[in-house]
Design a protein around this nucleic acid. Sequence first.
DNA 1: ATTGGCACTCGGCTGGCGAGAGTGCTGGAG
DNA 2: CTCCAGCACTCTCGCCAGCCGAGTGCCAAT
Lengths: 339, 339
Amino acid sequence: MSEERRLDVLRAIVEDYVRTREPVGSRILTERHKLGVSPATVRNDMAALEEAGLIAQPHTSAGRIPTDKGYRLFVDQLAEVRPLTVPQKRAIETFLSEAVDLDDVVARAGRLIAQLTGQVAVVQYPSLRRSGLRHLELVPSAEGRLLVVVITDTGRVEQRYLDVPLGMDDATLGELRARFNAAAAGHRLTEIGTAFARVTEAMPDEHRALGTAVAEVVTAALAEESEERIVLTGQANLARSSMRFEQGLRPVLEALEEQVVLLGLLTDMTDDAGVAVSIGHENRLAGLSETSVVTSGYGSSDGDSVAILSSIGPTRMDYPGTIAAVRAVARYLSRVLPS
Amino acid sequence: MSEERRLDVLRAIVEDYVRTREPVGSRILTERHKLGVSPATVRNDMAALEEAGLIAQPHTSAGRIPTDKGYRLFVDQLAEVRPLTVPQKRAIETFLSEAVDLDDVVARAGRLIAQLTGQVAVVQYPSLRRSGLRHLELVPSAEGRLLVVVITDTGRVEQRYLDVPLGMDDATLGELRARFNAAAAGHRLTEIGTAFARVTEAMPDEHRALGTAVAEVVTAALAEESEERIVLTGQANLARSSMRFEQGLRPVLEALEEQVVLLGLLTDMTDDAGVAVSIGHENRLAGLSETSVVTSGYGSSDGDSVAILSSIGPTRMDYPGTIAAVRAVARYLSRVLPS
DNA sequence: ATTGGCACTCGGCTGGCGAGAGTGCTGGAG
DNA sequence: CTCCAGCACTCTCGCCAGCCGAGTGCCAAT
């Protein structure tokens, strides 16, 4: 019983099942894939594969379907990379370069992934890590509140509200703004703390509290390791007939809605080197136990990635295609983004 | 045959159907609602209501369910406003006031609506209409691109990319920024055009093209009648058992994903005065023909609203409850937002 | 090691049947 | 004129039995 053919059988099962969404039996397998052996032989191989926990049958007298473990082996060893077609690559490139602002870039990236993979796309906003301060703006808001706008040198904009106990007149505010900007603009996170401290010290007593509050907000905004905003696209794809989940859509949608948790999952599974895949129960989130997640970092102009982009679909997804799409979009995205 | 009782019957049908999700027959009706008449009489009324197109039966020998027209009449004339409980109101207030920035405010409003109504919430970002320019920032981006950041005096931040043909050195950029800000900061949209024109004229020839380009971007950003970004929350609610659509979730999810079109629909149906309801086929979007949309403007500190907030669910929704929730959140939201 | 043959299992489809719910109608009472 | 009790009729739904086919596991033969 050749080990090699057994893996061929597994590959054939995965490919067929992904295509037809139906458990695949020994007869069909020999007909559609040139294995050069009879159904009976295939059955023996299948028994071995089942023994190894790579495939299973939903019920007796039904064909086999791959288990999570089977998919894992397929992805790690059996799947052949299928590069995108040239027109596809070109489409990605032009579509991304037409974006008018950062929101648009992210939105378009999501649409691309959703379109190319026919699944749900998750795109994280580019991270603030290693950001420097470009400009600081103070805007009086409703009574007793102050809007602090931080513009980083990567072009990201962060807004925070601040409760200020006493009324502020515009002149004071203007002066404050000018001082902070003069002291800190252009500096990186590490230097900003001390720069602000100097400014605050030099201020008259009645404003010192406000000064430290602002400084806190700014450093907090810059310090955030990663931006926690993500964008979901292609949720309508979940309702397609091809996406029948045992448990229904409910748990999946719920998992997608818990954006903080979801982002944590994505962050954990993404390693610096290229595309990562998490299959079925490998996902920490129970709601995603019937899905697989394909992610990649992007924006890594200087080596390590600053944000994440991924595609989520049923475990019976087209892994080579999805991986290719995610990788391609991540690459072009990195190129288009401001460095 | 009293007209009044006929409406009572309609109301009873709507309320029962909303609660149980099952077609309601004459017997049950007389048992659960004290109508004081026999099933036979109710049947006569039902026949009349059906004749008038207010109710229908899915098939013979099934109870009646309200039609879109029936819901419309119910909402317009029969529904009693059911105010929120005090704890609910308090929860809304505190939850909204805990928001740390604008994104957070919008996100929290969405979650509130989704939670309170058990449906999908759509929240539009506050509009830029009547905005003035607070500050303008120019950030060099990838080669040949310039990031223009516009901060309005309502605290909104707009970002746009601009293709600049020739390389720009930082000094020139800084000067440009300083001039524009000096000329335009604090002014409203209408005055900004002329202010920018003056600055551009005074500039050396080689920068004039860039100057006009920036001016264009800024005015365009300010002129936008409404911000087109919206946030969806509670999509997981769509998968709840209580939401069974004839056509499946697909068309609904697709409609929700077409954010531009969706926003158009919401904008059209929202009138300045309070909450608006659009039922079933009244919605222009075919995908929403099995749903009803409840919207309200918010942020109307000076009379007319600047953005929209809404809840979308099946036509068989709890109208009084949904209306109350939408109205309440819109109100508190208006209060919390920067004026 | 591979293969053809064979008995076995089991899920899904079909058709028929009965129960139950609900209706419309009719004729009579208040 | 309104209301109501009774009755015949219709239709859906759930159930059950039975059949069919796909697929398996095993075994003996090559």
